[in-house]
Amino acid sequence: MTQSAITTTALTKRFGNFIATNAITFDVAQGEIFGFLGANGAGKTTAMRMLCGLLRPSSGEARVAGFDIYTQTEKIKQRIGYMSQKFSLYEDLTVKENIRFYGGIYGLSNRQIRDKTADLLQRLSLEQEGNMLVKALPLGWKQKLAFSIAVIHDPSIVFLDEPTGGVDPITRRQFWDLIYESAAKGVTIFVTTHYMDEAEYCNRISIMVDGKIKALDTPAALKKQYGADTMNEVFLQLARAKS
């Protein structure tokens, strides 16, 4: 049996009277690409922050990379990577400085950082840009670099929060090549996106509506269940049903 990378049972977060995440239960297998979808305000970010060990749940259980999200949050942080469109790299540091900085944070040795830097720059064809400030890079390169840095410490899970917003269609697909490549190496990918074609690239998808998981299955099974041709139709049917 495949070991679970993430397992949650009735995971709940309340803010006052408001239930942001309402008893969600799901498993993500190691090496799986798991799409975590939902409308704005459906509770995705709250759930993700709990899974990253940044927010204490109100009730329910969850383990991430085998660690408990109440008592072992520091262990979790060492074993996960995180990247979002809003927070990724330090713009005023160079490409190499960013790699060194994050490598240092995750406790890599100087030697490991040196090897990783060379490897990463070569894989992204950024050898010439190593000493450039990150803010001078095109957005698409920044995002690919941010992803590579998010997995620099070989995490077992990487959380991606709308990683591809605003980039051109070719770069968006190159970004997914990186995701596939990591997943093939056994890294679990937990990703949110508003591009419904990207939902199709996931092994399984959950769709959150008003704090609850309303659907969870493979893209093919969901399309069949809702009689839809595309994930966009599935999403519209589910997310619209609430109002």
């Binding site: 939902g38 704005n40 459906a42 917003g165 508003h194 999403f235 997310a239 619209r240």
Partner: peptide, 8 residues
Amino acid sequence: TGVDPVSR
């Protein structure tokens, strides 16, 4: 931009 498919 950044808005979910339903709101879009």
